[in-house]
Design a protein around this nucleic acid. Sequence first.
DNA 1: TGCTTGACAGAAG
DNA 2: CCTTCTGCCAAGC
Length: 105
Amino acid sequence: MTPEEARQFRDAVLSIVAQIPSGRVTTYGTIATLAGWPSHSRMVGRTLRYTPGAELLPCHRVVNAAGRTAPGWGGQIVLLHAEGVQFKRHNIVDLSKHLWVPEEE
DNA sequence: TGCTTGACAGAAG
DNA sequence: CCTTCTGCCAAGC
């Protein structure tokens, strides 16, 4: 992956996350696939964590494929709960009800 | 240059 | 449902 591609990937990830509606969530794998690199799901999380400005985006609406929230970040659960997202467990989001898939928009 | 780590995903126990 | 292992890739040491 060239620096140019890395820039595009980061841009695509941030763009998609910025479009997640309130009360909805999406997964790292989905974002990575939409961004063009299906196997870079981990890069999505890394990008959101290390890219300055990611905090300004609704990154709390991004969970893993199992609906688990980010470990060590309890605030995410509070934020999601405040938007009406229901949990199957303390840190497990009910994806069947809140999963959102980007639509190019 | 080479090993370890991680906001992951999927399969297995 | 929860924990652990493997495959994945870029970043940190």
